[in-house]
Amino acid sequence: MQATPDNQPSFETAFAQLQTIITQLDNTELPLEEALRLYEEGKRLSALCASILENAQLRVSALNEVNQTPPPTAEE
């Protein structure tokens, strides 16, 4: 029962990307056009992060209780 909608990046991934963009934006050598593009991307990522936080619901999955003997493997 894997209930992970992994088609969108996780908060951590998006937030890390946002941090990277912030670091990149600190570079004054950056062409202005590139800076604006990064900024737009940063805005998009932060909105994504905010929506992930807002809509988050703990995703709990239960593993089957295993026997004390290890389960048979494919070779057996």
Partner: peptide
């Protein structure tokens, strides 16, 4: 906590704006 993440996100957004302002 998620609340702290939210604050960090807020701060990151402000930094983002400030960096763009700086660049401009």
């Amino acid at each position: 906590t998620a609340q702290e993440l939210s604050l960090s996100l807020q701060a990151a957004l402000e930094t983002l704006d400030a960096r763009l302002d700086g660049r401009l």
